[in-house]
Design a protein around this nucleic acid. Structure first.
Lengths: 207, 207
DNA sequence: GGAGGAGGTGGAACGTGTTCCTATTATGTC
DNA sequence: GACATAATAGGAACACGTTCCACCTCCTCC
């Protein structure tokens, strides 16, 4: 069995990972923890494979057995963090009278969380942007999470989604990603990203 | 004088570069040509600094004197190509009765151009995504070009732009970038990017 | 409980972006 | 034209992602 495990997506984007032995699950966790720690400290550049291996108390070869590249590693870490964030938001009622207000609430809350950890966000965004098709699965997961967060904000309690809903969520996701890139790369300030997001949402959801 | 030259932006995003001696201008051109050639052949990975230097008949140190990193090099190449494309489109009448139709025309035309050179596009998009604040100037140029292309398509012949116009152009730019990333990284097909763009434009421009 | 194999360790080695150094060649000044 | 300065050539050296290999350890199955 590969230590990457098999990712099974159940119903509404909740993922369960079947990961071999407890020792393997533990190694995987240690690796991701080390990744997040290093990324939080010093961003993308600080996540050096040798450093991750050392901090996770794992050989370099083992690290590569679990995650075939630095990009996979970071995107997997991103996915884990994202799931955790989404779990916190799920089941909580969202404030706001209009769908635009609720969506903006969700976006700002998430963005603020990310901007509280600039280095971590930089590392994860960079990885996301650099990923190629071989990380498709992990990225798809993140995309689904975001879409479900946004559509829930648009129509709380509803499970029926129109094509337009999904399309709007996707556009918002695109703007969000671009803003994040702009912020991470120092081309935009935090408040500018907030304004840009709010602007986009109000353009898209004016009903 | 640094060989990077001084970039002066005149009026409507037309840029003129003052680049020292003819020999320096020539070297710079040779370097960018070599970059484009290698990128066209084999994409981001094929643009190796030693290879660029050799093909441009320039020492490695000289290459780094002109472009302080591979990312700067690729983003500069992107900017040059983009300017050329915009120049072709400028002054030509745009078909379509509604602003949405015209914007979609511009986007599809540009996107088709890019997708005709997959490797080149991959290289340039990757660079764009990986750029940090030190490439702000070059990236800002590209952004301005795109905005001016889009707003012209929205209101041909008009020079008055509302805040909404600019905001819409920016959102479209974001979607375009995300689609491009999706396509470059193999997560979306060419036709999917087309659909996503059209979808987004029609959501934003429904007047 | 011993044999076989999958998974792990430790570290060398390779490729490519980047830096640095010295000798050589242009370029501009008097 | 001779000199001072800047720019370039040529290439070694370094850092980090990635690959590879030899050996060890632990689990599984008989």
């Amino acid at each position: 069995m590969t230590p990457w495990g098999v990712t099974v997506t159940i119903a509404n984007s909740l993922t369960v990972e079947d990961l071999g032995s407890a020792a393997q699950r533990d190694r995987r966790k240690r690796i991701l923890d080390a990744t997040i720690a290093l990324a939080t400290q010093g961003g993308f550049d600080a996540v050096q494979m040798r450093a991750v291996a050392e901090q996770a108390d794992v050989a370099l070869g083992t690290l590569y057995r679990y995650f075939p590249s630095k990009i996979h590693l970071l995107v997997s870490a991103l996915a884990r963090e994202f799931e955790r964030a989404e779990l916190q938001l799920r089941d909580k009622p969202l404030p706001g009278d209009t769908s635009a207000d609720r969506v903006i609430f969700v976006l700002k809350k998430t963005t603020r969380g990310l901007q509280g950890d600039p280095h971590l966000t930089e590392a994860l965004t960079r990885a996301f942007m650099f990923a190629d098709a071989s990380v498709q699965a992990e990225i798809h997961n993140v995309g689904m999470l975001l879409t479900s967060m946004l559509t829930r904000a648009m129509h709380p309690g509803s499970t029926e989604l129109t094509d337009d809903d999904v399309a709007i969520a996707r556009v918002i996701g695109d703007v969000w990603l671009s803003s994040l890139v702009g912020w991470v790369t120092g081309r935009m300030t935090a408040s500018e990203t907030g304004e840009q997001l709010e602007r986009a949402v109000r353009l898209l959801l004016r009903d």
